[in-house]
Design a protein around this nucleic acid. Structure first.
Length: 348
DNA sequence: TACGCGTGGAA
DNA sequence: TTTCCAAGCGT
């Protein structure tokens, strides 16, 4: 059985992660906490393990249980998520926590079809929670699994059209035995052996049955449709510092880019942004610009700063006291802009 | 089906 | 410097 060979490999090579119950612990009867599995899987959507570790630790320290998270303030959760990206995940995280608390008696459902109904939980995450936390034989299909299946069965159809056939292959391999360990094993295989570049076929537990390896096509799989080039957009942001040290910030609208996050007031991000400072002041443009790349465009931000008086009345945003402000609560692009202001505030 | 939606590390 | 890419979801 292919799955047995993979589980044997996993028993020997499973990586330690803060949210993971290892194969030895599972055999001793330990079951993962669905809350921690859910939280980690949402954080891991399109995000590397290295990036998630610290965030997972901070979240579980601050909100140890689902109830704690469900009763948290939105702004606190968004601030804690700042820097991790894809902020709709954080908004849906809170929605999901509150739905499970209010409508599911505080317990995550274990069934794939029930999980799929919850905010922020799609096909991958539903299968991951169901298999890893509840040991149901569901099939996880993430980018790793797609790559492993494309190579194992030498499928040359480009993604995303190949998604269905790859999912079918993955489903045929999913065992009834140890489904939670198997789900993590096949993803670990993709993350550590069957890597996008230079796969380590020589030490792969599926070396022999792998068709792409036999044909020598592993390096070119999975095929992908060409990506669109990223345009460059421009913007202006305004960083106002009140005489008492407070900064003028605004909470961005819930929908769209950086939705629900704290940010500096500014222009739209377009080919030719318009000046529209949030208050009248002696604005000074910094020499350096903040550069940042989002999923679908490059951004070059001009940063303007000003000192303003204690009675300043902005047209938008609100002043946040110095003691209540941490740049770590900002999404990265906003933090980059703020970092440019270091040393730019003359002593008065 | 295609697109919007972040970020940081590797090459 | 630029491009690629990593445990996807919602619309």
């Amino acid at each position: 059985m292919l799955s047995d060979a993979l589980l044997d490999w996993y028993d020997r090579h499973a990586r330690t992660m803060p949210w993971r119950i290892g194969p030895a612990d599972r055999k001793a009867g330990q079951i993962p906490d669905p809350y921690r599995i859910w939280l980690s899987e949402v954080m891991l959507q399109q995000t590397t393990v290295a990036a998630v570790r610290d965030y997972f630790h901070r979240f579980t320290t601050r909100w140890p249980t689902l109830t704690d998270l469900a009763s948290a303030k939105d702004a606190d959760v968004m601030a804690e998520w700042a820097g991790l990206g894809y902020y709709a995940r954080a908004r849906n995280l809170l929605k999901c926590a509150r739905v499970v608390t209010d409508e599911y008696d505080n317990k995550f459902p274990g069934k794939y079809t029930e999980l799929l109904k919850l905010p922020g939980i799609g096909p991958y995450t539903a299968a991951a929670i169901s298999s890893i936390a509840f040991d149901a034989p569901e099939t996880v299909v993430d980018g790793n699994v797609e790559r492993v299946m494309a190579r194992l069965f030498n499928i040359h159809t480009p993604l995303p059209a190949a998604k269905m056939p790859l999912t079918e292959k993955a489903a045929l391999l999913t065992p009834q035995k140890r489904p939670g360990d198997y789900a993590q094993a096949v993803m670990d295989l993709g993350a550590t052996i069957c890597t996008p570049k230079n796969p380590a076929c020589g030490i792969c537990p599926w070396h022999d049955p792998c068709v792409a390896r036999a044909e020598g096509t592993q390096a070119e799989l999975p095929k992908k449709m060409p990506k669109k080039p990223k345009p460059t957009r421009f913007g202006i942001i305004y960083i106002a510092r009140r005489d008492d040290g407070a900064f003028l910030l605004e909470t961005r609208p819930d929908k769209g880019l950086l939705g629900g996050m704290l940010g500096w007031p500014g222009s739209d991000w377009t080919d030719a942004p318009e000046e529209n400072p949030p208050l009248d002041a002696d604005w000074r443009t910094l020499d350096a610009e903040a550069r940042h790349t989002f999923t679908h465009f490059h951004l070059r931000l001009t940063v303007q700063i000003a000192y303003v008086g204690l009675n300043a009345t902005p047209t938008r945003g609100e002043f946040i006291e110095l003691h209540a402000f941490q740049s770590s609560s900002l999404p990265t692009v906003m933090r980059k802009a703020f970092d440019l202001t270091a040393g730019e505030w003359p002593k008065s």
